[in-house]
Design a protein around this nucleic acid. Structure first.
Lengths: 229, 229
DNA sequence: CGCAAGGTTGAACCGCGTCAAGAAGTGTGG
DNA sequence: CCACACTTCTTGACGCGGTTCAACCTTGCG
């Protein structure tokens, strides 16, 4: 058994986790652990693809720009998530950006090596393919929501999915502190509108707000706002 | 060389095309050619997954419902496209519906057999994975467009992508006759609004309309409407 | 203490979805 | 071949949801 793994936490690494033990030593030769501070950019839309990242700890937002001052947050990547996997395929250019929203530790794997791993390790490839299928499913649901769901529903949906992904802290608040700007970008709306919606939800006792923390009181009612599907 | 292939057009079949020749006979045992008339449903959102479809000829829309009277068309599947591949993954339920918009001939492959093929044929699996990566890229771009692009831009985008996918007929019109309702659902808007936008574009000499046919005159100006990215 | 950055609120504007109603096609049966 | 019903097209008016702008009010920080 090869020891330190350069700090790699096997359970959280899609690559390590889906390959035979004999490969791990080789993998470690091609891995690189990286840290990012809050706000730091991991990679940017339009950049040539260099590799793929596995999140060990912290959180990153995956986002896409519109013009100079608008963005849409596609998803958040936390423990165990993969970043930059859309760099596969033909174009070899990142289609999205990734930025740390909480201090982030990732494992970087060179794209060439990752591609080679996929081609030789069919189980890894299959798992990744299934992951893609699931992400596509989510993505298409979101498209429909964006097209037809009013803002209040989108905010509700955003809060629910954040709680589902990050759980709650000891106070019952969603265990991710997000700037209101990010929340707006995630709900595909504007700062002011999201502010007003959250205020509404507070008055209706559906959510509780303390500073930047948001907690969900009435999941039932929140979910009702997302109906129509 | 095994002959008829039950009518399978190898060049257009992702499965046949990405597997070794020795497999083809086996594949043919698990294949089934099916025809659908315009308007017929291939599969529906929420149905359990039975298999995967390869389009030989004709066109289908892939769409998702919102409430009872609204839908969003995610994409169109034509020659060589795959339908129902999102049925992979864990849920085993179609997340979208597929409906023929032009008389359709498809090849149906049982999901169990397809999964087995993917697991034994790593090249096939890799190709599908790359296909997913590309679809995800498109899907995420569309999400951003839905969030930030005004209707006129989305119609422009819709027309450009339709022309790119289907080419033009002898008269220079987009080689797919689409009901205005479908066009609206594709541009994620309403019948009336799309009507007005198309009228605008006609007045500006950017597009030409004859009956249901739509032709693009000025790709430059259309593309300009989609800018902001 | 003062300035900057973000939070809070009001008001105006406007894109576009909705409704309604008439015109123009399309089909069907007598 | 016409009468009738029915769908699709076309256009106008209206109003709501949500973005935008701008002002004022906090809070943190050097």
């Amino acid at each position: 058994m090869n020891k330190p793994q350069k700090g790699c936490n096997l359970e959280k690494c899609f690559l390590c986790n889906n390959t035979v033990p004999e490969w791990r030593e080789t993998i470690n030769l091609h891995k690189q652990n990286l840290k990012f501070k809050k706000g730091e950019v991991i990679f940017s839309e339009g950049q040539p693809v260099t590799g793929i990242y596995f999140v060990y700890s912290g959180t990153a937002k995956v986002h896409k720009k519109w013009g100079d001052d608008k963005e849409l947050i596609i998803r958040f990547a936390a423990d165990g998530s993969i970043l930059g996997h859309r760099g596969l395929g033909s174009k070899m250019v990142y289609g999205v950006s990734a930025t740390a929203v909480e201090p982030l530790v990732v494992c970087f794997v060179d794209i060439k090596f990752f591609e080679a791993s996929l081609k030789t390790n069919s189980d890894l490839c299959y798992k990744l393919m299934v992951l893609f299928a699931e992400e596509l499913d989510v993505s298409e649901r979101k498209m429909r929501d964006l097209a037809h769901m009013p803002v209040k529903g989108r905010v509700a949906q955003a809060l629910l999915s954040l709680e589902e992904q990050f759980g709650q802290d000891t106070g019952g608040y969603i265990n991710l502190t997000l700037s209101r700007h990010d929340l707006a970008a995630f709900a595909a709306s504007t700062y002011e509108t999201v502010f007003r919606v959250i205020m509404d939800l507070t008055k209706e006792n559906i959510v509780v707000v303390t500073g930047k923390q948001i907690g969900i009181n009435d999941r039932q009612k929140l979910a009702a706002l997302t109906m129509g599907a």
